[in-house]
Structures are given as C-alpha cells and as structure tokens.
C-alpha cells in the first residue's frame, strides 16, 4: 500500500491513563475510500483510539498521519479533513435539529443560504424533516444518532470516524445506518468505525482490526480473518440415545458429545453437502431433534484470537425441528 493513498496511517500508538495502559502500541493503515472497522469488546480501547485520531485527546507515543497530515504537528489541518460521530451523543439538546445543522454549516462558513439548503437536505436524507423544528433533547435515541451523523456530514469530511454508530439502534435503524455508511464510501469517503458487533464489521468493513485489552490481536479482510477460525459444521441434537448412536454410525466423520447427545459434522455450509448429510439420516430413518448449520463467522475468529466468546450473539443460522 502506497503511503500517499492512506487516509489514516498509525504506527506505535500508545496511551495510558495513570498506570493503566489503554493502547499498547497500535499500528493501523486505512486506505482511502475504504471502510475500516475496529472491533473489540467493552473497554478494549476503541473510543480512546478514535479520540486520539480525531485530535480530541493526545497520545503518549506514536506516529500518526490523518489525511496526509501529521496529527501532532498540524492538528488543525487534520480537523479540517475529518468528521466525528462519537460514541455519546454530540448534539446540542437546547437547539432544534435544524438549528444544530445550521450551526454546523456556520462553523464551516458555508454562508447563510447554503447553510439552510444543506440543513434542509440533510433533514430530508436522515428522515428528520418533521422533527427538525423540535428541540434535540426531545429526540429518541435513534433520532439523536441520525442527527449526530447528519451534523458530521455538514462539512463534507473526507474521513469520518464513527464510534459504535449502531449501538442501541433497533434492527431497522441499524440497517439504514449501514446503508448510509455504504453510500458515503461509494462517494469516496473513508470511514473508520468501531463496533462490538462482529456481524456489523463483517457486513461493512473492507478491513477489520480486532482490538483486545489495548492490543491488536488480528487484522485483515473479513475473509482472511474467517480463515483463522475453525471450519463450519452441522450440529445435530438428539433426544433418544439410540437415535444418537445410530446417527453416529452413519456419519463417521462427526465428532460426538455423548452427554448432551450432540453430533458435529464438518461441513462447508453448501446446500449440496447439507443435502448429502440429510439424505444419510433419512435413509437410516433417524429422528433428529434439532439441526443447526454453523458457518465460520467472526464470532469464531473473535474466540480464536482472544480466547473469549464474543458478546450478544447467537450462532444459529438455520434451525429446524
């Protein structure tokens, strides 16, 4: 990767609070026009990293270039190129949605008429037209989040930081947020987003870095990371011990758990291979209580690289009884 096409280039980033080491030598390279996801559990240091890269707090050590500018030497140039939507709401609750947007436009010196035009356009785009005249403190969490992102976009930043943009959003809002992020990147913007949701990183990111206890424990494309994880399988659960034993016989490749009457059959998740397994069970007239198809996903990666299960996730893709 040529360094001039890097939107964000970080080497050896360190930060501690008192004697608590929060970021322990982080290296990140984010290419222009891509989505980069910083994935990690609570307390991993995601917000701290975003705060440093967005000039809000200073690092203890590290070479940081954002939008081609040395962050330490020329923070104002960095500020002029970025937009930030932090983890916690950064809207002015005592102003209306529209006033918030116009204030941002004023701070970007767009001029009066352009400011109003831009505010109206963003209210429309973020589905806030009706709410635009109401005080932002009366907004729901999802509306605040949208206003927050709209405010970030007023100045057409080239690089956008989104700290957990979908935490607390319902599934519909989450999907529309994803759609917005994709549109931004289609327009040439670079996005660095943090998330605790593996699914989200998988869905959006060109590259993912897994952060745990202030260290990057893995980095790569979603596909590369998935290769780190053990393969997929079909999980079969039985209620009758005799059925379990019979199935174990017709499926010799399966690993068996005699206590919970569960078989795990290695499987690549394709319809063909699934049909083959089902055919063998059917031929032997075996009664299966529950079937789950498990394809390797980032959960497995997370588990493989951190040694801890990821939070808030179910791995059931298909369940039948």
């Amino acid at each position: 990767m040529n360094s001039s096409s890097l939107a964000i280039d970080v080497a050896g980033l360190r930060k501690s609070y008192g004697d608590k080491l929060v970021l322990d030598g982080i290296d990140l390279k984010v290419a222009e026009g891509t989505i980069f996801s910083l994935l990690g559990p609570n307390g991993a240091g995601k917000t701290t990293a975003v705060q440093i890269l967005s000039t809000l707090i200073t690092a203890d050590a590290g070479e940081i270039r954002v939008a081609g500018h040395d962050l330490h030497r020329d923070p104002e140039a960095v500020r002029a190129a970025i937009g930030v939507t932090g983890q916690f709401s950064a809207v002015d609750g005592l102003l209306t949605g529209e006033e918030n947007l116009v204030m941002m436009a004023d701070l970007h010196h767009l001029g009066r008429r352009e400011a109003r035009r831009r505010a109206a356009e963003l209210l429309e785009r973020f589905d806030l037209v009706e709410a635009g005249k109401k005080l932002a403190m009366t907004y729901s969490g999802g509306m605040k989040r949208r206003l927050d992102l709209a405010m970030t976009l007023v100045g057409n930043p080239r690089i956008i930081f989104l700290d957990e943009p979908t935490t607390g959003l319902d599934p519909r809002s989450r999907h529309s947020m994803w759609q917005l992020v994709r549109e931004l990147v289609a327009g040439g913007v670079t996005v660095l987003l943090t998330t605790q949701y593996l699914e989200e990183a998988d869905e959006l990111a060109d590259r993912i870095a897994v952060l745990d206890h202030g260290q990057l424990v893995a980095q790569g494309t979603p596909a590369e990371l998935k290769r780190l994880a053990p393969g997929g399988h079909i999980r079969l659960r039985f209620t009758a011990p005799d059925q379990f034993a019979a199935a174990a016989q017709v499926l010799p490749s399966a690993s068996r758990d005699d206590e919970s009457l569960v078989l795990q059959v290695p499987n690549d998740g394709s319809v063909q291979s699934l049909r083959a397994v089902l055919a063998r069970i059917d031929d032997a007239r075996i009664e299966v209580d529950e079937l789950t198809v498990h394809t390797p996903d980032l959960d497995d990666v997370f588990f493989a690289v951190t040694g801890q299960p990821a939070t808030n996730h179910t791995d059931e893709k298909v369940t039948s009884r």
Partner: peptide, 13 residues
C-alpha cells in the same frame, strides 16, 4: 460535560 463541545474540539474552528 456534554458531547457537543467534544464535537467542537474536533472541528477546525
């Protein structure tokens, strides 16, 4: 203590 000032501080104002 509010987020809006954090936002201001990341802007070139």
């Amino acid at each position: 203590s509010e987020g809006i000032v954090a936002r201001f501080r990341t802007m070139a104002i």
